[in-house]
Design a protein around this nucleic acid. Structure first.
Lengths: 131, 131
DNA sequence: TCTTACGTTTACGTTAACGTAAAGAGGAAT
DNA sequence: ATTCCTCTTTACGTTAACGTAAACGTAAGA
């Protein structure tokens, strides 16, 4: 079945440990089915895991990732919940745009330092020739 | 002097605690001068602190920020160090570009969910009128 | 002179996010 | 039958990044 994953399937695919996956379940971020005592994950679980790891890569806590997951699944929400959700979405969008700005600043600075490094290196190789 | 900051000056400016600043010094990320027993920070310290906090916002550890700081101050490096530094810079650039991609994915998804929310809400308000 | 505000060091406490080890169950292969 | 592999639960351990509290020094202001 294309929609069935064991815990080690997912662990392998995303290069994490099974402990990590169990921990996420413990925290309520994943809710796999059971076959006997073994966990069976489906596509929804897989996507959630992907979101968690993406959030992690961006410096989000698991609690923030929990929010993010909620933002991806608005189907069950009522009007009030949807409004709260929209607010959260706006907020998160602002934060992401801000992060992009910080990244761009850092990239610009790194490019600058890169140039300095290369200039210095080429200067040193010149000195080696003439000195 | 425009280039002198007390610990609480910086704490106030960046909305962090003095404990945090002392902690960064303890870890060797900041190296303020002393006036008696009091710490005196200069512009370099301020910039370093800014870099640390920017890194933090992007999910970097203090050790990674230590690396970043090194990338901003290549003056003292010799040839070998510069080459290592360049490698680190390339690596960090890759990572930052990757982070930007993740952010864009997430922004796209959020925009999508936002639309769904708004559609659902407007649908519900229609139902309220006709129901 | 006393309080208030700021600074110091030392040191134990806390939280998130897992790591790691122990002890065991269930199924497949030799 | 036993070895191997994957799975389970329980539970203590660990690290980063500070928080918090105690106990103290110093200088300004009422």
């Amino acid at each position: 079945m294309n929609d069935q994953f064991s815990i080690s399937d997912l662990a392998r695919e995303f290069s994490i440990t099974t402990r990590t996956i169990r921990f996420y379940e413990e925290k309520g971020l994943l809710t796999p089915q059971r076959q006997g005592s073994s966990r069976i994950f489906n596509m929804t679980d897989r996507i959630r895991l992907k979101l968690i790891l993406r959030g992690k890569c961006l410096g989000f806590s698991l609690e923030e990732s929990r929010d993010i997951i909620g933002m991806y699944e608005p189907e069950t929400a009522n009007t009030r919940q949807l409004e709260v959700l929209l607010d959260k979405i706006y907020e998160k969008q602002q934060l992401l745009e801000q992060q992009k700005k910080e990244i761009n600043k850092m990239l610009k600075d790194l490019k600058n330092t890169e140039q300095i490094c290369m200039d210095t290196l080429s200067l040193q190789s010149d000195e080696a020739k003439t000195g």
